[in-house]
């Protein structure tokens, strides 16, 4: 029984990890960021490249990926999204284009492959990140088998959620972000630099995606297309949780992950996925604005 709960918990933590960044970029800023998966992918590649060329392990790759993806997010915000606030459908199309662009950049090794230069760790192939040995060796505590890598993901996810909550609800910048979420015009009228705060918020959400990428790289394949699959799950969690609600995101990730885990064990993974989608449809019919919602822009 504890095994089943653990699998569900682990699935929840991965969902939450991906959704956390989205709940900020989509939830707080109203940008449907289709490139979110690619920011995850950039994080994963940062870990691969850091391992290959700088000999840095997972623990150093985490902050590095946060910075890399955060910077990438900042550039995307400055170049594309800044011009599209309030035009939700346009952000969807524009960021989708950005997503394709990022995938191709990695696949073509930033264009170097045209010149016949091969950078190890980039290109269209499958890559992997080395996980430190002690994180792959399970151990027993009081008869319960602990899987260290999945436990590590759960811990990091909870820490990041706590950090995000603290930033949003206990710091002056967080107050500004929440003010912009409710009403950007009034926030601007109160003297908040909306453009600057928005850019920083987007960069922070992108950085979280980068951290998610590093952790995913530990048990999934790293490849240029990896982001497309994760972004759908992310949106699912955010929409069910209620746009802009951190608590809602947390709760919906927990519920969907457990449902997925239990049904995957009792029946199979394919059916479990169908059940998850069924639950999502039912929840959205029942509460069109998600579990927790408030009036926002």
């Amino acid at each position: 029984m504890s095994d089943i709960i653990f699998i569900g918990l682990s699935l929840s933590s991965i969902l939450l990890l991906i959704a956390l960044g989205l709940s900020i970029t989509y939830g707080a800023m109203g940008v449907i960021n289709m490139a979110h998966g690619e920011l995850v992918m950039i994080g994963a590649y940062t870990a691969v490249l850091a391992g290959l060329h700088l000999n840095l392990n997972l623990f150093f790759a985490l902050p590095l990926a946060f910075v890399t993806s955060g910077l990438a997010g900042l550039v995307i915000e400055r170049l594309v999204i800044r011009r599209l606030y309030g035009r939700i459908i346009d952000t969807l199309l524009a960021t989708w284009g950005v997503a394709i662009l990022l995938q191709q950049l990695v696949r073509l090794e930033f264009g170097l492959s045209f010149l016949g230069i091969h950078v190890e760790g980039l290109g269209p192939g499958l890559q992997n990140m080395t996980v430190p040995g002690f994180l792959t060796q399970p151990f027993d505590i009081a008869g319960i088998t602990i899987q260290p890598y999945r436990s590590f993901i759960i811990v990091v996810t909870l820490a990041l959620t706590a950090l995000t909550w603290w930033l949003m609800y206990r710091t002056p910048t967080g107050v500004q972000v929440r003010a912009i979420m409710r009403n950007p015009q009034i926030a601007a009228a109160c003297g908040i630099d909306v453009r600057r705060v928005s850019a920083l918020t987007f960069a922070y959400g992108s950085g979280l995606a980068g951290v998610a990428g590093v952790l995913l790289a530990g048990f999934k394949t790293v490849m240029p297309e990896m982001g497309a699959a994760v972004v759908i799950d992310g949106f699912l969690v955010v929409v069910v949780g209620g746009v802009g609600s951190l608590l809602g995101t947390l709760l919906s990730a927990a519920v969907l992950g457990q449902i997925n885990g239990v049904f995957a064990i009792l029946t199979n993974d394919i059916l479990a996925r169908a059940v998850v989608f069924g639950v999502v449809i039912a929840l959205i019919l029942w509460r069109p604005r998600g579990l927790f919602s408030f009036k926002s822009r």
Binding site: S10, L11, I14, A264
Partner: peptide, 15 residues
């Protein structure tokens, strides 16, 4: 047992 092509969450199956 079968999983979808490209499926990458193996927790339940390995259990």
């Amino acid at each position: 047992e079968y999983l979808e092509l490209g499926h990458s969450e193996w927790g339940a199956m390995v259990k």
